[in-house]
Amino acid sequence: MKKFKIRQMRLITLIGCTVFGFASCKQTPNAAMQSSSYETMTVGTTDKEFSTSYSATIRGRQDIDIYPQVSGTIVSLCVTEGEVVRRGQLLFVIDQVPYRAALKTAEANVETARASLATAQLNYDSQRELYTQKVVSEFSLKTAENNFLTAKAQLAQAEAQEVNARNNLSYTEVKSPSDGVVGALPYRVGALVSSAMAQPLTTVSDNSTMYVYFSMTENQLLSLTRQYGSMDEALKNMPEVTLTLNDNSVYAEKGKIESISGVIDRQTGTVIARAVFPNESRLLHSGASGSVSIPSVYKDCIVIPQGAAVQMQDKYLVYKVVDGKAASTLVSVAPINNGREFVVMDGLKPGEEIVAKGAGLLREGMQIK
């Protein structure tokens, strides 16, 4: 009898514990829901600027490889690496002796051709006079005329050879084709050079202003075109850009995007853009690298934290607080952001209250504390 009572008491205790446990489990979600809270914000308008960076290469406005136009030995080197030169300044002198001799020969050939032409002229005039007096035949006249025309052509040929010889002599003095800075000088005095060389004598880089080239993706190009209405308007109205050098320092001068290629590369899916930067300090060098930052300015726009939005394909979901409950709404945002905030283009109005953080945990109609 005692054993039965003990078992009965244990069963009652077990049932009581089980009921108490179910009650506790049932109350836990309600308690958790009551204690949850979310950070909210009231939407307003402000001005915002985002920057997009692109890897870039720096080139001189004009990088000209200097090749000799005649063959010969370098007898004089007139510049040093890094020297600033002007257009027409002498850079190299190639051995002129054979070219001076060739010019003298050409000049002598011209004089000989002139004398031959004068003789042919006299003979032709004489034969023509005799033909009118019917002293000589027409054949003799025609022969004299042909000799005269041949002598005339030989003079023209000799004069052309003289011009060519004079040009070759002038080519022995290699001059700078533009203002700029001299690059490396791989050939020194005594080196044999020719126009068929694979490597240039040097490179003259016009770096008074510098071209900075960078690539934009097709989507970035479309976004830019939509933002300004057309590519021409974009080039006119885009703000000045900044250049960050390879050591992470920011170049003091601002640049301007001058052109964007109208053809998308099929292999990379990008277009080439070119910005122009002044280089009075000559801090920028052709061949260097860096990155270009393009600012995107939005006036009187709505800015929200990225934690306030949940991405749904090409749209974003934001939860408004309406009568203390979460009400979802779709918004469109600007394609450019800083990784922390979105600029809302459509879907929200100033004065509306939204959940500013943890939107991914919300559900429609949830109580917002």
Rank of each mutant, 00 (worst) to 15 (best):
Q220M: 08
V297M: 01
S249F: 00
H285M: 09
A309Y: 01
M231Q: 14
N279F: 02
A252N: 14
I264N: 05
G255R: 06
V241I: 12
P239C: 08
V271K: 12
E280D: 15
T244V: 13
P278N: 08
A309E: 02
M312K: 14
Q311I: 08
E240Y: 05
K254H: 11
S296W: 12
I272G: 01
G307S: 15
M231S: 09
K315P: 04
E258A: 01
R266G: 10
F277C: 00
L224A: 08
S223N: 14
A275Q: 02
V263E: 12
Y298M: 02
N279S: 06
P305A: 09
S291K: 15
I257P: 03
D314H: 11
T268C: 03
V297L: 01
C301I: 13
I294C: 02
S261D: 15
N237Y: 10
A275C: 07
G255D: 04
Q313T: 14
I304V: 15
L317T: 10
L283A: 10
V271R: 14
V322P: 10
V318P: 03
L284C: 01
L243D: 05
Q227R: 10
M238L: 14
N237E: 09
S291P: 01
E280H: 11
V241D: 05
N237H: 11
N237T: 12
S223I: 02
G307T: 13
L235Y: 02
M231N: 09
I302P: 00
